[in-house]
Amino acid sequence: MKLAAVLLVLAVLPLLGPPAYYLYLFSTAYQFATLATAWSLLAYGGQVSFGQAAFFGLGAYGAALASLHGASLWLTISLGAALAGAGGAAVGLAAGRLNGAALALATLATAELLRGVALNWTALTGGGSGLVGIPSIPSLPGIPLELGGRRVGAYHLSLATLAAALTISAVVLRSRAGLALAALREGETRGALLGLRPVPWKVLAFALSGVATGLAGAVYAHTLGAVEPDVVFGRVFSIAPLVMATLGGRSLLGPAAAAVALYLVSELVFHPLAPALHQLPYALALIAVTLIRPAWRRIP
């Protein structure tokens, strides 16, 4: 209920008429918050992903390709999310054989692999220069155009994506699946001895995390109007959710809140100081969170 109220307040904020840049900034912040929420769904089951960029990129490219072939907005976003979900399920199958560091490395390699394929499969993906001309998101009906122009639609859709990710997370954690994932996290062998089959639950967690991440990727593609392999499959989209979710702690809203805060600090404080070093806050936060080890740290 509290969550719904927060989301509602955020949804009416554009009516105050902030500059379009801030709407863009917050849309991206919500996309990162979605990524962080999707990452912590995996972490809840004890699985650490270093390659969320794989799902983000799949979502972005899925939506971009669909829209350039004339699909409508809802279809492109669903297709992007479905593609990322399928990718997630595939990684989840692989995760059935791997654990801990090996799984983390496998997800990292998956993101690198997809980046390389997107760079080289020029006929489909446009190669290194990517795809441009992806249509932007129209405003909700009834919102006057002078309010932030074409940024309002992106703002609302990004917020809706975040709401979807939080809902998926909340539903999963309260269901049988959440129990199974917690059991896997606390001790996979013990769980297996009690008759818990790990693979289906891992596949489910990865598929859902992929869907949520892919949703954000698809909305990103429409927000920016362009996708590039080195960006959407880039390391930032793997590192950022990892950092944000570990900073955010174990609660449902923590990762999302930390994501918004960290992204805003990075964009509003670090970016003006040194544009080349915009990844620095993520690097420093990641190192700090590993070394300081507060009680609320996330990774099992």
Partner: peptide
């Protein structure tokens, strides 16, 4: 696992 997380950050740094 934790060394992966730490050095992922260090590599970015």
């Amino acid at each position: 696992l934790w060394s992966c997380v730490l050095t992922f950050g260090l590599s970015l740094l």
